[in-house]
């Protein structure tokens, strides 16, 4: 089992009303110094079997056709390192 993370963000030029709402709320809550906020989505996919090129290609395809709306969003795919040893 391995985890693949797909991050989806609105393209930089596209208006992000949610991010703007967060940005406007920050100073009201006393958090100064943040000039822009953009909000995205993170998908964590648990993949059966090895994450080889074929598996990544498939994930790329599903991200492009389903997880992201590539007309207005960009996405990145990355494999998360095994955590077993990193624990402690």
């Amino acid at each position: 089992m391995a985890r693949v993370v797909v991050d989806v963000m609105l393209k930089p030029e596209i208006l992000d009303p949610q991010g703007q709402a967060v940005q406007r709320a920050l100073p009201r809550l006393g958090f100064e110094g943040v000039s822009d906020v953009r909000q995205g989505k993170r998908f964590e996919l648990e993949v059966d079997g090895p994450v080889d090129d074929a598996a990544l290609a498939r994930i790329h395809e599903l991200a492009e056709s389903f997880l992201a709306n590539t007309v207005i969003e960009d996405f990145t795919v990355k494999v998360e390192e095994e955590k077993a040893e990193a624990g402690k």
Partner: peptide, 15 residues
């Protein structure tokens, strides 16, 4: 400059 700007506009009904 980035050569391709999107033709798509995103609306914000609350605005």
């Amino acid at each position: 400059k980035p050569s391709k700007r999107p033709a798509v506009q995103v609306g914000d009904p609350f605005q």
